[in-house]
Design a binder for these strands. Structure first.
Lengths: 221, 221
DNA sequence: TAGATTGTTAATCGATTAACAATC
DNA sequence: TAGATTGTTAATCGATTAACAATC
């Protein structure tokens, strides 16, 4: 037991990106099965709704740290709880969103975020035509009010949905306001201090893959 | 030269997902540099705006099939054209979008798609409150009109932004209408015939990675 | 010429897949 | 018991990184 694996259940959360990205898909199916009255689920049942290889699913589930029973599979409730806890989706993070254009507005009203531990409590913009309005039930404030509101509401997470030209500027405001995690939907790589986590989302990547697939198909005709 | 590489320029488009996902990021920076008056770009200049390793960028660019000059780098115009052509972003695909909720509305107004060869020409829904309206300048029709319109406008691409419960139903309508490529934003894995390309986008995956990063950071405090 | 950069070939790393023993 | 399923250990595969020769 030298340099042991220090695995205290599922709480060590070794970052394995491919697995983490697949977890929401599993979770979605598990919840569906539960709502259909199932109590146990096997990997073979899971992959019916999926196109992953069974062994891949099993490897992923092992990381959740809950034991499966041969012949029956995993207890649905336990597995759901384990995944939610692994992802931190059992606790709620309150977040501010900056940039209420098409994409920002969508995220303000995107139910799955709220159901999965990310509660966007307010939007921010600099456009006077938007400030003061309400989008999907969320009030829009002027960016200049962000710092004060973040402190008062103890907000630690920010979402950036502004064009790349103003993304760094917005990030600086968020950092200055004490935000510790930024989900960045702009195309700009942000400069952030080491104590601020920054995750870049890239919708264009998805379009790129889709475009190439479309082309390949068209070339076959 | 047995079993030769059959590389006719960049037109073979070997599907290398990680590279394809990085291309839009390169493209974005290249266009910026061009607008700033640059004519040539080296990988070292590119990675200033990025956090990839230089060798990774070089490997990716080699796949674009255009030669770089030692000491100067790549001709910006050539590189931009090569990437756009690789991705098929130099030609326009017209698309229909089904499901005009928060996410669907956002995509209807998402400029970057239109700038990158995916022109959403109309939206569809079954909600009478939405049919007939205009979102971001795009007319919303009833789903029952899709088939007829698709044939008339020769639409071959569909985007699904409905809840998972109705996703398969919508996919069936699209397939029936002769659509050959589906970009699926729902959580359901769609059943499609082999001649229809389907690409699944999963916003929840991004949230999952972000959530885990947030947690890891909070655990450090 | 010296030095920066490209592009190729080899080495490493990490993720997926396969094989199989353990278990109910 | 027989058979399905878990979970571990080893093998394969593919992507990233390193090393280095070629080039301007």
């Amino acid at each position: 037991m030298i340099e042991s694996t220090e695995d205290q259940g599922h709480n060590n959360k070794i970052l394995r990106l491919p697995t983490i990205k697949r977890l929401p898909t599993y979770l979605h199916i598990l919840k569906r099965l539960k709502s259909e009255g199932e109590e146990y689920v096997s990997t073979t049942a899971l992959i019916n709704e999926l196109d992953f290889k069974p062994i891949l699913v099993r490897k992923d589930l092992v990381l959740m740290g809950i034991p499966g029973k041969p012949r029956t599979g995993y207890c649905l409730d336990d597995l759901i709880k384990a995944i939610e806890s692994f992802l931190g989706w059992n606790k709620v993070d309150k977040a501010f969103l900056v940039g209420t254009g098409a994409l920002g507005s969508a995220l303000l009203g995107h139910k799955p975020f709220e159901e999965n531990g990310l509660k966007i409590v307010a939007g921010f913009d600099v456009d006077p035509a938007r400030v003061g309005k309400t989008i999907h039930g969320k009030k829009i404030y002027h960016l200049s009010e962000l710092k004060e509101l973040a402190r008062r509401m103890d907000i630690k997470v920010g979402i950036i949905t502004v064009p790349w030209q103003s993304a760094q500027e917005v990030a600086d405001v968020l950092i200055e306001a004490g935000i510790k995690g930024i989900w960045n939907f702009s195309m700009l790589k942000l400069k952030t201090p080491p104590d601020v986590v920054c995750h870049n989302e890239n919708l264009a990547s998805g379009l790129a893959v889709f475009s190439v697939k479309l082309q390949q198909q068209q070339n076959l005709i």
